[in-house]
């Protein structure tokens, strides 16, 4: 605690303030510069008149809404909608399944509890890049039974993502669940509450921060996934942002840097909004519980 004594002069107080607190503001400015400069560049590139990389090296050399207008000539908005639907559903499913699993691991004692928790985490480490052959064949067989789960179905893609819903999510939540004192549910149990009632009515409201965090992480994961989405969603109007926007800059014969930048600015908005909306939970949710594994 900084306790200033009456004997100190204002000058020493200032230098003390500077040494203890003040320097943190310029540092914050520096970090902000590091964090934001690429983003400033994207905004500048998205506003550039001509959509080429070499033409955007000078920041805000020209301001034009061209690139944003051109987004309307592409399937960009349907990609946004797809991404939001797929991301939202996956986040919702991942939160529910993860929370249920974490509850089981946290509150019940059963054989192989630790081992299964670790196995869940380790299974997630399987490199998916080559598994696309298997994913593809699986969805073809499922698609013959019900097209809803076949290739080019967003439902199928959501299911594939949900296949990875346990694992790291469960682990993150597990720690948090453990931090909720057992006495709370024990007293409810004495009052005659069932395990389901304890889960839904007592635990879930208490763990909201970690639910928000897991939901956000799942959403960001879907947002950034490229390989699975590219393999499963074959038709253009079903694409996600990652698949569609990659095409703008990867295609050998197209120079769409400006379009990409404009798309990137628009696409990062939902994530940013989510971040800001959930911010009060995020800091508390990420590790608060894992102190007690």
């Amino acid at each position: 605690m900084a306790i200033s004594r009456a004997t100190k002069t204002p000058a020493t107080r200032l230098s003390r303030w500077w040494a203890e607190v003040g320097w943190k503001y310029p540092l914050a400015l520096l970090v902000f510069f590091y964090a934001a400069s690429p983003l400033v560049y994207v905004v500048s590139a998205s506003l550039a008149q001509r959509g080429t990389l070499a033409g955007t090296a000078r920041l805000f050399a020209s301001i034009s809404p061209n690139n944003y207008e051109n987004l309307n000539n592409t399937a960009f908005w349907s990609w946004v909608v797809n991404t939001l639907i797929i991301g939202g559903s996956t986040a919702f499913g991942a939160v529910l399944m993860g929370a249920a699993a974490a509850y089981a691991f946290s509150r019940f004692r059963f054989r192989g509890r630790r081992t299964s928790l670790t196995s869940l985490l380790i299974i997630q480490m399987f490199p998916q890049t080559v598994a696309f052959v298997a994913v593809f064949l699986l969805l073809i067989s499922l698609g013959r039974v019900t097209p809803l789960l076949g290739i080019n179905s967003t439902v199928a893609l959501i299911c594939v993502y949900l296949g990875g819903a346990l694992g790291a999510n469960t682990f993150l939540m597990f720690g948090f669940f453990n931090s909720i004192p057992k006495e709370i549910d024990e007293s409810a149990k004495i009052d005659g509450a069932t395990h389901a009632q304890i889960f839904w009515k007592i635990i879930m409201p208490l763990v909201t921060p970690v639910l928000a965090v897991v939901g956000l992480l799942a959403f960001i994961g879907v947002f950034g996934d490229f390989i699975l989405a590219r393999i499963i969603l074959t038709s253009e109007h079903n694409w996600t942002l990652a698949v569609g926007m990659y095409q703008w800059v990867s295609a050998e014969l197209s120079a769409n840097w400006g379009l990409f930048a404009a798309g990137a600015v628009v696409a990062s908005l939902p994530v940013l909004v989510l971040f800001l909306a959930l911010q009060k939970y995020i800091v508390g949710g990420l590790t608060a519980g894992s102190v007690k594994g």
């Binding site: 001509r50 080429t52 990389l53 070499a54 050998e252 120079a255």
Partner: peptide, 9 residues
């Protein structure tokens, strides 16, 4: 490709 296009343009 992109830079080539813009330099020539």
């Amino acid at each position: 490709y992109d830079i080539n296009q813009s330099l020539f343009s």
